[in-house]
């Protein structure tokens, strides 16, 4: 007759379910480091697993699936929000650092006034919105410095529009219609605008930003008329 060695006997009883609470905990810990035990347990799970087929099914309460869904939905929501924010912040920081020098140079060559402090400010006061089309390459970057009350919009790398222009919009449910923040076209082009602390800044911080394609000279109606290609919201750049 086949005899079970110590490991096999322990594995078999663990799977069978006859061990005491302490023994179960010990085996559960030990299998994590004892590969032979872990394999033996797996083998017994397969040997005895078919017994489950002889158990009569019992229909679960109708709301059980919703409870499970809620548990999953909740944790997913938390994870996805957190990881998306972290990914955006990393990207925003990367682009901000890469473009702080390059755009300053480009802008100064173009004779545009550069608010350096607004581009590379104190970390805790810096907010960034990466306006993209869901891809990894930001088209526009919008930074807000709540210390200097300055907003800078940079056209990072939008696809070239021949006889059209990009127009940047702020969208908020607190406003009857989107507000134009200006028109931009050339990669590296940037616009800086001072803001007022208080309600204006608060509105700005909670708004969404969008970039549409408009005729040269801007939207004729004062609201976006062309396709909205890029969108984004402000997040803290350096948590």
């Amino acid at each position: 007759m086949t005899e079970l060695d110590d490991i096999d006997g322990l594995a078999a009883e663990y799977v069978l379910g006859t061990l005491s609470r302490e023994e179960r905990l010990t085996v559960a810990d030990r299998r994590a480091v004892d590969k032979a035990l872990d394999r033996a347990i797996g083998a017994w799970e397969n040997r005895l697993g078919s017994l489950v087929e002889t158990v009569s099914p019992v229909a679960p309460s109708p709301n059980l699936y919703n409870k499970i869904r809620a548990q999953i939905g909740l944790s997913q929501h938390v994870i996805s929000l957190k990881s998306r924010e972290q990914a955006l912040a990393r990207r925003a920081n990367r682009w901000r650092n890469a473009f702080a020098g390059a755009t300053a140079l480009a802008a100064s060559l173009a004779g545009v006034m550069v608010y350096r402090d607004a581009i590379v400010p104190q970390p805790a006061t810096q907010y960034v919105a990466v306006l993209d089309a869901g891809s990894d390459k930001p088209a526009f970057l919008l930074t807000v410095d709540t210390k200097t009350n300055m907003c800078v919009i940079t056209a990072v790398n939008p696809p070239k529009q021949s006889d059209k222009t990009y127009q940047v919009w702020m969208v908020s449910d607190k406003m009857p219609k989107p507000k134009s923040l200006g028109m931009m076209n050339e990669p590296g082009e940037m616009q800086a605008m001072p803001m007022q602390a208080g309600p204006e800044m608060d509105l700005f911080m909670n708004a969404s930003f969008a970039v549409s394609v408009e005729p040269i000279g801007g939207s004729p109606t004062g609201t976006p008329t062309g396709p909205v290609l890029f969108t984004g919201k402000l997040i803290q750049a350096t948590p």
């Binding site: 007759m1 086949t2 079970l4 078999a12 009883e13 069978l16 006859t18 040997r47």
Partner: peptide, 18 residues
């Protein structure tokens, strides 16, 4: 005794399944 029975039964099962 139960433990001995269990181990014997499980060994027989293992042999039979193989």
């Amino acid at each position: 005794t139960i433990k001995t029975w269990l181990h014997r039964s499980l060994a027989l099962l293992k042999g039979c399944l193989e």
